[in-house]
């Protein structure tokens, strides 16, 4: 017995390691499919997302005409799922971009002006660290009510301090002695220094950070929507599908399981891809 385990364990590991690039390829395939779904959702879905059919309520998975079954109002789960993928991905994508642009800009400003600007950015980052993002979002949603735009902007604040910290650190080290100080010395304007020299040099690090933020934003948005405070009906997102499916956990678990499955696979794929990118592009950050 012991012999078998000691022999087979390393072989298993080697197999896992060999399979890793294949896993990355699978992750890319899945993400590609998700992007296609997001773009083509209108053509792909067999039913309208609000089309109710009270005769066909809670039809189980695999039924003819309803591949993933129907929900409590007889709406096709597959159609709703495709639309939800689009909504969740678009929100996460826009928010990731906003957060990256916002954070990088603040980081560069802190590096360029130092002094009180830097203190302000650090204080804002402290503030962000002192309030769990979920709680802050809930407060903002409580005050303003929920709308799609507000949700995107709110999610756009997620993780900005990470970009700010990276951008500030790299810009300062570049300006202290390196090429950036040299280009300033050549007479370049600050915008030229930051856009032509520093930004391209830190881009790979920032992109890797984006692969970290993206799945976290998906989880954050689906968490809020699950609580019924994010994306509002009649629009639907992955989290809010899980949230509504929860009521029918015992009778129709498929309503909740299908979107859960998509959430887990998507975040897993991005994490795998991010890990792989990190190893390839930037071995310096964890």
């Amino acid at each position: 017995m012991t012999d078998i385990t000691t022999v087979s364990a390393p072989r298993l590991i080697r197999r896992i390691r060999l399979r890793l690039p294949a896993l990355v390829a699978l992750a890319m395939l899945w993400l590609g499919a998700m992007v296609l779904v997001a773009i083509l959702a209108d053509w792909l879905r067999p039913y309208d997302i609000t089309a109710m059919n009270l005769g066909d309520r809670l039809v189980p998975m695999g039924s003819p005409g309803h591949l993933l079954g129907t929900d409590e109002l007889g709406r096709d789960v597959l159609s709703r799922l495709l639309q939800s993928i689009r909504v969740s991905l678009v929100i996460a994508f826009c928010a990731t971009l906003i957060s990256a642009v916002f954070g990088t800009t603040l980081g560069f400003l802190a590096a360029q002006f130092r002094g009180w600007v830097e203190h302000l950015v650090v204080a804002l980052a402290d503030f962000q660290a002192a309030l769990p993002f979920m709680i802050m979002s809930l407060a903002v949603l409580a005050f303003f009510g929920s709308s799609m735009w507000l949700l995107v902007c709110l999610m756009g604040f997620y993780g900005w301090e990470r970009y700010a910290r990276i951008a500030r650190g790299l810009a300062i080290s570049a300006s202290a002695q390196g090429y950036a100080a040299e280009v300033v010395q050549l007479g370049a304007s600050p915008s030229r220094v930051y856009l032509r020299h520093i930004l391209p040099n830190v881009a790979s690090t920032l992109i890797v950070s984006m692969t970290l933020t993206f799945p976290e934003i998906i989880l954050m948005e689906s968490g809020l929507s699950f609580l019924g405070l994010g994306v509002q009906p009649p629009q639907s997102s992955l989290g809010n599908m899980v949230g509504f499916g929860r009521e029918y956990l015992t009778r129709a678990p498929w309503i909740m399981l299908a979107p859960s499955f998509v959430i887990v696979l998507t975040t897993l794929s991005i994490s795998l891809l991010g890990d792989w990118l990190r190893d390839r592009l930037d071995p310096t950050i964890r």
Binding site: Q177, Y179, V183, L186, G187, P200, N201
Partner: peptide
């Protein structure tokens, strides 16, 4: 330093410093 006039003047005066690898943009 860093005023517009200062930046224009850079065309007339230049610095060469110790570490050429740090002075160049690696990209």
């Amino acid at each position: 330093p860093r005023s517009a006039e200062w930046r224009r003047l850079r065309a007339q005066m230049q610095l060469i410093f110790q570490d050429p690898l740090a002075a160049l943009d690696r990209r």
